[in-house]
Nucleic acid binder design. Sequence first.
DNA 1: GGCGTAAACTTATCAGTGATAAGATTATTT
DNA 2: AAATAATCTTATCACTGATAAGTTTACGCC
Lengths: 191, 191
Amino acid sequence: MTLHKAKKTYHHGDLRAGLLSSARMLLEEQGISALGLRAITRHAGVSSAAATPHFGNLMGLLSALATVGYEELAAALEPVLEEGAHAVGLVYVRFAILNPGLFTLMFRSDVIDRNEPALAAARARTSGMLTRLIDSLGGQQPQRTQAGTRAALWGKVHGLAVLAIDGFLDVLLSSQGEGLSLEDLLEDALR
Amino acid sequence: MTLHKAKKTYHHGDLRAGLLSSARMLLEEQGISALGLRAITRHAGVSSAAATPHFGNLMGLLSALATVGYEELAAALEPVLEEGAHAVGLVYVRFAILNPGLFTLMFRSDVIDRNEPALAAARARTSGMLTRLIDSLGGQQPQRTQAGTRAALWGKVHGLAVLAIDGFLDVLLSSQGEGLSLEDLLEDALR
DNA sequence: GGCGTAAACTTATCAGTGATAAGATTATTT
DNA sequence: AAATAATCTTATCACTGATAAGTTTACGCC
């Protein structure tokens, strides 16, 4: 009787997860502008005020969704951390391409609250992984250029992700080499 | 009599420029979320419907503001185009740091309309300058890696700009070398 | 020079948004 | 079993961007 999702009850299981799932679906299918409180709750089959006990307000909900993003990104990066910057960069950009809406949301500080404890924690964990990786590279450089090297690497990876989401890399691809896939381009760019 | 700005008249000079100026001030001082139609028109001392004849709607106004951004960026890049990628990258990132709100707006496709003719033209002009510059570099490379090199360079510069706006570079700076300025860091990173 | 048309701007109003207080329903604790 | 607390709904509020209708000014034309 008790199915996985008991939809009929007044309290239906965990609305928190349901709202996050609805928000994510709307985000990836219709973009960030579709992330209204009413749209999300309507998609979850619930009244527009039902999100309040779980998230407080819309920004709280979107911050929780961004938290999921940081956690998933960390989970994707962790297995390849030992393989070096090239592999990590590839996974980073791939994550952005596969979850463009979520990735974009994670950096929209006007819509999410970066002081939210859970979000700040997930963010710190993820960026700590990257910082440690970057620190392990080129340790024998003169100290003056170390920070520059880190910034360059980080900037390149993040910039490629943003450009890929915005479709600039496809422009680069189609304008020139024909037999080149996006994966190949990233391989070369991250070398 | 006819001063530069005749404020008292019913039609006051060019409201179009006045609204763009108000929007820009609000943008840089209070962030993108302060860019409401009512806030902008109120700041310009005009009714909330006064923007309609000039811009159609809010998205039209913000698209025009982003157009200004692309034009200013192009004007800043043009004088250093001959000096190579390093100088151009530096100017690019400096522009982002000096106009963080405007730079961010230029890439927020949910708030501006990229099909707006003037915006599309300014955008094409600016990115054409960068494309030509990138094409002039490393022409003797094997063609397979050419697109990769372009993407890497473009990604690095744009990524550094985004990271700088988000404050990540300051984190990198303060966590390590003390006697390093942001300019020095960018110098090294863009090498 | 005056008239008529078009443009700029205001006022008033509308549907839609996120937030919230108050009430109804179910879980949980004792 | 009763009491308390949590979840969810309903109703409402202030606010937003858009728009139609009306008012004021500019401008081309005779």
